[in-house]
Amino acid sequence: MTSAEPDVVDVRPVSRSGLVWRVLAAVALVVLLVHGSASTRVTDAAWPLGPMSQYAFFPGPDDTVVITRVYALLADGERVELPLRVDTAGIRRADVEARIPVIEDDPSLLRAVSEGWSSRHPTEPRPVEVYLVQDRTHLHRGRVVTVDQVELARWRVTP
């Protein structure tokens, strides 16, 4: 797939210093990347040189799998889900999940979801109350046994 290096072609010269800095830079790149993933002290905040930690954890056979959702009570009394995607609420589910503890402490942070959804659905009634909930799927010996839902935070929407 990669072309073999030909014997006779138009080859652009490279200076020794140009070669030296390139090799040093490539070695530094490798060292930094390996350090970012092999060190126990480096966190995701070190991106792009942090650990490749997506899916690098170990749910057990009796764990609970949670899916975070946000629901809203609209001004017309209807309860709807505000899907946690950039195109529907201006924020990803993963970003909300990463902030669950601070949202539980300060539910007004749900304003980001409420305003994000309203600005993308101008013809819908505005939410008067929003709820942060989690669908919980309980596993037993590696199989799904029950599903329930728990409310984590609730915020009365203020202008």
Binding site: V30, L33, V34, G36, S37, A38, T40, P51, M52, S53, Q54, Y55, A56, F57, F58
Partner: peptide, 14 residues
């Protein structure tokens, strides 16, 4: 690195 270091982290975290 995207693949290999992913395996490193999965092993390190364990």
């Amino acid at each position: 690195s995207t693949y290999f270091l992913s395996a490193v982290v999965k092993t390190k975290n364990a």
